[in-house]
Write a protein that binds this DNA or RNA. Structure first.
Lengths: 234, 234
DNA sequence: CAGTGGTCTAGACCACCAG
DNA sequence: TGGTGGTCTAGACCACTGC
């Protein structure tokens, strides 16, 4: 099957290749034509084909190796792109009103599990912050966070009742490495009270830790109100 | 500050720009030099700079607009890449033994909520499948799935006791659109029994629906055993 | 309208790795 | 060790959009 019209931009090449995969003209495991051949067939430069195939490989549809050529992925590892915005933007993006309350801010040494997470000593100087994020006045997410004062000294001067620690850190403490995990937990008595729900409700939990180089910056535990769903397209 | 050595490949340009962002030489909101200028400063072609900046924009570190130039993102939307492999590979990848049991496979018309999800009529011909995935012999995930027979007729001939519906679909039914959501639920009595746990345990739930064009293919509900954590790097 | 990023091209050399 | 993808270059034109 040859194309009658020329595909001279990488997006149309991308789409055409995807079409051939979807129609099973090229099946999982099949080797597809080399870049030079495809470029010739489609009537464009090799660089254009390269761009298209590179994107498809990044999306998980193709496996590419030098010398071995390009093959249709046998197990298309689906890559869901989770956009993780600042909470405020997540809420405002849905057209709801965002409010925020600082519940606690104290300077103290961290408990053992935080030390383990961040790789800091148990006598380090840290800020312990808990806060509640609300959407249209209703509890949305309860945040408990530890911030290393050594790593980001300026945070002790920040007015965390005006701007959430989350948001302050995004603006002032870039990180080089981060880690995030998602799970389900039962609401503790305290969490239930704060989120104005009942004990033993199933809650969605996000745990996040970030480092700058080898220095642990912050570790946060985000517990969402019942009914929360994280959602994305494939 | 100028570089003494020339950065002639896009990765080093990428890293250098990222360094300037991290060191706050370029702060959130700042406009950074235009491609031509950067290319000149670093001693490489504009295409190389373009490639580096394009990747950084895709990673969420930069905002780029024609005519307006390139700025450091004020709210670096963090993009976590969730790799969603076939369950079997997820388990085997951790060095555990994967087993799989087909619990039910029946051909019948779908309940209303599935119709709504997939956009099919309530009298459509569908396959209803439930199965259990185990890691090292322990229940790992309980899967309940509806598959449109109209969209993928070949599935009725597949031996779903040997290969999971999940995996069969990946190989034989490419999709063009997909949707995935994550949440926390309480174990129902049935789910608790199957996962060999207790009622009212908090469970991690993934709901996934896929389409080919406008045709709904399959809708699945994946309930994970207690303690499951989905995990990724930022 | 003019400046900036977005893309294409033709050609070249390099790096990796399967045979 | 040769074939394939990975990348760089210089130059060109285009598309969007702020002024």
């Amino acid at each position: 099957m040859s194309t009658t019209t020329e595909l001279t931009n990488w997006q149309s090449v991308h789409d055409e290749v995807l079409r051939r995969i979807h129609t099973r003209e090229w099946k999982p495991g099949d080797q597809i034509p080399k870049e030079v051949e495809l470029a010739e067939e489609l009537g464009c430069a090799r660089a254009t084909v390269n761009r298209a195939l590179r994107e498809l490989a990044a999306e998980g549809f193709l496996d590419r190796r030098r010398k071995a050529g390009t093959r249709v992925a046998t197990h298309p590892v689906r890559r869901a792109r989770l956009d993780i915005p600042v909470i405020r933007l997540e809420i405002e993006g849905r057209g709801q009103k965002y409010t925020y309350g600082l519940l606690l801010s104290e300077r103290r040494s961290p408990p053992p599990e935080i030390c383990a997470n961040l790789g800091v000593t148990s006598d380090s100087d840290m800020l312990h912050i808990t806060s509640l994020h609300l959407a249209d006045g209703k509890p949305y997410m309860f945040e408990e966070r530890w911030v290393s004062v050594a790593a980001t000294p300026e945070i002790v001067d920040a007015d965390l009742s005006k701007i959430s620690a989350n948001e302050w850190l995004v603006l002032h403490a870039p990180y080089t490495k981060g880690d995030i995990s998602f799970s389900a937990v039962l609401a503790s008595e305290n969490e239930a009270k704060i989120l104005r729900t009942q004990k033993n409700e199933p809650l969605f939990l996000i745990e996040r830790t970030t480092w700058e180089g080898e220095k642990g910056i912050t570790s946060a535990r985000l517990v969402f109100a019942p009914g929360y769903r994280m959602h994305t397209a494939l």
